[in-house]
C-alpha cells in the first residue's frame, strides 16, 4: 500500500454517529409502527361504529348499481330508436327511388304501334 492509500485510510476512518442516534432510529420506527396501527384502528372503529353507516353504505351501493343499470338500458333504448329511424328513412328513400325508376322506364319506353 502506498502513502496516498495510507493517508486515505486515515482520512476516511469510520466516525461515531451523534449521541442518541440508535434511540432516535428506534423512536422513528416505533412512531411509524404506531401510525400504521392507527390507520387500521380507524378502519376497525369505523366498521364497528354503527349499523347505520353500514346501511348507508349498502344503500349507496344499491343506488349506484341501479342507476348504472338504468343508464345502460336508457342508452340501449335510444340506440334502438335511432336505428329504427335510420331504417325507416332508408325504406322511404328506397320506395321513392323505385317510383323514380318506374317513371324513367315509362318515359323511355317506346309508345304503342302507330297507325
Amino acid at each position: 500500500m502506498n502513502r496516498l492509500e495510507e493517508e486515505l485510510k486515515k482520512a476516511l476512518r469510520q466516525v461515531e454517529p451523534p449521541t442518541g442516534f440508535a434511540e432516535r432510529v428506534l423512536a422513528r420506527a416505533a412512531s411509524a409502527k404506531e401510525k400504521k396501527k392507527a390507520r387500521w384502528l380507524w378502519v376497525l372503529e369505523w366498521m364497528e361504529a354503527s349499523t347505520w353507516r353500514w346501511a348507508a353504505a349498502c344503500a349507496l351501493c344499491v343506488v349506484l348499481a341501479t342507476s348504472g343499470i338504468l343508464y345502460r338500458r336508457e342508452r340501449q333504448r335510444k340506440g334502438e330508436e335511432a336505428k329504427e329511424q335510420v331504417m325507416l328513412a332508408l325504406r322511404i328513400t328506397s320506395s321513392k327511388l323505385q317510383i323514380a325508376a318506374q317513371s324513367i322506364r315509362e318515359i323511355g319506353a317506346p309508345e304503342g304501334p302507330q297507325r
Binding site: L12, V15, V25
Partner: peptide, 11 residues
Amino acid sequence: MREHQRMVFSI
C-alpha cells in the same frame, strides 16, 4: 443496530 451504525453513518 449498534454493531452497524458506525459503518452506515460513516458511509
